[in-house]
Structures are given as structure tokens and as C-alpha cells.
């Protein structure tokens, strides 16, 4: 071994020949450059991965939200179903209530109408029998015909003492000179006096004095004591009311007896005198007159 060489100080890079030093520096530059490139690549890869992670996290969040939203939607649909069911139940209940309400309203109107009819009948009967004045009784019969039923031109006839003819005792909106006495059995009015059968057409129309539109015999028991001839009705009276049939019946069966009572009362001196002989007459019954209640 060369001692001089062994003892020589170690060579430094700067001591290296120029080509080696250049080569080494070139290598180092190349190495450092490559390291920088790898670092750049790694950093780029890292960024890329970071972006993908962010995307995945975003997707994850979206999916989680959707999942939550689906749950909310399911709850929402359940709630809608429940509300729909409640709505159907309420609609059915409302329908039932409406039916009941309509029925109640209809029944209320029916009751109102019945009450109105009963009031008419009650007041008519009350007024008819509340007076012993012939004029007032006649006035009440005229009011029943004109004000309650809507008759316009009419006449009231009463059978005279001999029973063969009837004379007019009251009339409205008819010329008195045209109201001839009625011969029992003659013509339409005379026939009604004989038969006691009323003629009340279903439809309202106009008639004449000779051919009245409606005829109502006045009965006391089974005896005809007079007749009402209705020639015309008020122009606004287009059809019969339910109560009119009952009013006809009331007049036909009660007007005669009310007139008889008023007429008998007018021939005595006050109520006490009118009661004279009641006890003696209590068990007597006129042979040709049966109480109305017994005729049926």
C-alpha cells in the first residue's frame, strides 16, 4: 500500500476532477428535480383524492338527506292518509247532518203550516160561535169566505119558512138584482138545497151567478137550511190551501147552527130568557135533526 497515498488527506468534492464534479452535480440536480416531480405528483394525487373524498362525503350527505327525506315523506303520506280518512268521515257526518237538518227544516215548515191551519180553524170556529148577533155571525161567515179562503164574489142564501125556496141574506161583489130567490130542486143551487151535496172543484175557476164555480150547502144535522154560492175567487187565489177543505166543512156544518142560535137569541130578552125551558127541553130532540156527530 502506498503510505503516502494512505496518509494523504481525503479528497473533497471540490478536489474531484471537473468532469466528476459536474457529473455529480448533474445527478444531484436530476435527483432533486425528480424528487420535486414526485412530490408534485404526490401532492396532485393527494388533491385528487381529497376531491374524491369530498365528493363521496357530499354524496353521502345527499343520500343521508334523501333517506331522511324519504322517512319524512313516508310519515307525510301516512298523515295524508289519516287526514283523508278523517275528511271522508267528516264528509259522511256532514252529509248525515245535512239530511237530518233538511228533514228538520222540512218538518219545521210542515209544523208551522199545520199550526197556521189550526189557528185559522180555531179562530174561525171561535168567532163564529162567539156572537149571538145575526149580523156578526153573517160577518164572520163572510170573513171566513173572503179573508180566510179568498172568495171574492159570493152570496149566502137561507131557506125560507115554507122550505120551498131560499133568499139571499148576504153577498159580496155581486149585483143584488141578479141574485134571484132559489126554488128548492130547481137549477144547480136548488139541487144542492135538495141534496145537501157540495160542489167544490179541484181547480179554481170563475163561474156565473147562474152557474157558480163552487156551491156549499149549509147543514144543521142532516137538514139543509141554506146554501153558499161562490162565483169568483180573489185573483191572487190560484189554488186551494190544505185548510180550505176544513174551512168549507166548518162553514157547512156550523154556520147554519150559529145563525139559528143568533136568530133565536134575537127574539128573546137576554141570555137568561134564552135559557128558559132548557131543563124541560133537555131530553127532547127535534125529530128531523140528528146531532152532526151521530150522522157518521
Amino acid at each position: 500500500m502506498n503510505e503516502d497515498a494512505d496518509n494523504a488527506p481525503p479528497h473533497r468534492a471540490s478536489d474531484a476532477p471537473m468532469d466528476l464534479r459536474s457529473e455529480r452535480e448533474s445527478f444531484l440536480r436530476s435527483f432533486i428535480k425528480r424528487g420535486a416531480e414526485i412530490t408534485e405528483e404526490l401532492l396532485g394525487e393527494n388533491d385528487k383524492l381529497r376531491g374524491e373524498v369530498e365528493l363521496l362525503e357530499s354524496e353521502n350527505t345527499r343520500l343521508r338527506t334523501q333517506l331522511a327525506s324519504d322517512d319524512a315523506m313516508r310519515d307525510f303520506i301516512k298523515r295524508i292518509d289519516a287526514l283523508e280518512s278523517e275528511k271522508r268521515r267528516l264528509l259522511a257526518a256532514t252529509h248525515e247532518l245535512r239530511v237530518v237538518s233538511d228533514s228538520d227544516a222540512s218538518r219545521y215548515e210542515e209544523i208551522e203550516s199545520e199550526l197556521n191551519d189550526l189557528a185559522n180553524l180555531y179562530i174561525a170556529a171561535y168567532q163564529l160561535h162567539a156572537s149571538f148577533s145575526i149580523r156578526r155571525v153573517l160577518r164572520h161567515v163572510q170573513d171566513m169566505l173572503g179573508q180566510l179562503m179568498g172568495a171574492y164574489g159570493f152570496a149566502i142564501y137561507i131557506v125560507e119558512g115554507d122550505g120551498k125556496r131560499a133568499e139571499v141574506i148576504a153577498h159580496e161583489h155581486l149585483d143584488l138584482s141578479t141574485l134571484e130567490p132559489i126554488i128548492v130542486g130547481d137549477g144547480i143551487l136548488g139541487t144542492a138545497l135538495l141534496s145537501g151535496v157540495a160542489k167544490i172543484p179541484d181547480d179554481i175557476a170563475s163561474g156565473t151567478v147562474a152557474e157558480p164555480f163552487a156551491i156549499l150547502p149549509l147543514l144543521v144535522g142532516d137538514r139543509v137550511v141554506g146554501v153558499i154560492s161562490i162565483v169568483t175567487m180573489l185573483e191572487q187565489k190560484s189554488h186551494w190551501a190544505t185548510v180550505d177543505a176544513e174551512l168549507f166543512k166548518l162553514i157547512g156544518e156550523h154556520a147554519g147552527s150559529a145563525l139559528i142560535a143568533a136568530n133565536l137569541y134575537s127574539s128573546v130578552d137576554g141570555p137568561v130568557a134564552a135559557l128558559y125551558g132548557v131543563r124541560e127541553n133537555l131530553n127532547k130532540r127535534p125529530p128531523s135533526v140528528a146531532p152532526i156527530a151521530e150522522r157518521d
Binding site: 199550526l115 197556521n116 189557528a119
Partner: peptide
């Protein structure tokens, strides 16, 4: 209102 009247 024309007669015959209806109470209602």
C-alpha cells in the same frame, strides 16, 4: 201582503 195570509 195579500190575503189569504200565511202566518210565516
Amino acid at each position: 201582503i195579500t190575503k189569504p195570509i200565511q202566518a210565516p
